[in-house]
Simulated scan of single mutants.
Amino acid sequence: MAKLIYTAITSLDGYIEDRNGNFDWAMPDEEVHGYVNNLERGNGTFLLGRRMYQTMAVWEEIHVQSGHPEVMRDYAAIWHGGDKVVYSGTLDHATTERTRIERVFDPENVRRMKADSATDLSVGGAQLAGVALRAGLVDEIHLLISPVLVGGGKPALPEIDATRLELLGQRGFGNGVVHLHYAVRNS
Rank of each mutant, 00 (worst) to 15 (best):
G176S: 00
D83M: 12
H33T: 03
G124P: 04
T45I: 14
V131M: 13
W79G: 00
H33V: 04
Y182M: 11
T163L: 15
G14R: 08
L143Y: 10
D18W: 04
V32P: 03
G125M: 07
M1T: 14
H93D: 13
L168N: 13
A2C: 07
H68S: 03
R98W: 11
T55Q: 10
F173I: 02
G124I: 05
T95E: 13
D74H: 09
I160E: 13
V58R: 14
G174K: 04
L168M: 12
T55S: 11
T10D: 05
R164K: 12
Q65A: 12
G153L: 05
G124L: 09
I101P: 03
L12D: 00
S146G: 00
G125Q: 09
G42Q: 14
R112L: 11
E159L: 10
M56C: 01
I141Y: 03
Q65R: 13
V104R: 14
V64K: 14
H93L: 11
P155R: 13
N109D: 14
F105M: 10
L12M: 14
R171H: 10
N37E: 05
M72P: 06
D106H: 11
G81D: 10
K154F: 06
I101D: 09
A26K: 01
E166S: 15
W79F: 15
L149T: 06
I141A: 08
T45M: 08
L128Q: 12
E60H: 14
K3G: 03
Y15I: 05
S146M: 06
S88I: 04
G49W: 06
F173Y: 00
L165D: 11
R100W: 02
A162W: 12
Y182S: 06
T99H: 09
H33Y: 13
A183E: 13
M1E: 12
F105W: 11
W79D: 00
D92P: 03
F23R: 04
D74P: 06
G176V: 03
G176E: 03
L47M: 10
H63N: 13
L12W: 01
H179C: 01
S146P: 01
L121P: 02
G151I: 05
L128S: 06
K154L: 14
T99R: 07
I101C: 09
H93A: 15
P158R: 02
A118P: 01
L47N: 02
V138A: 04
M1H: 13
L128E: 07
D116A: 15
K154P: 00
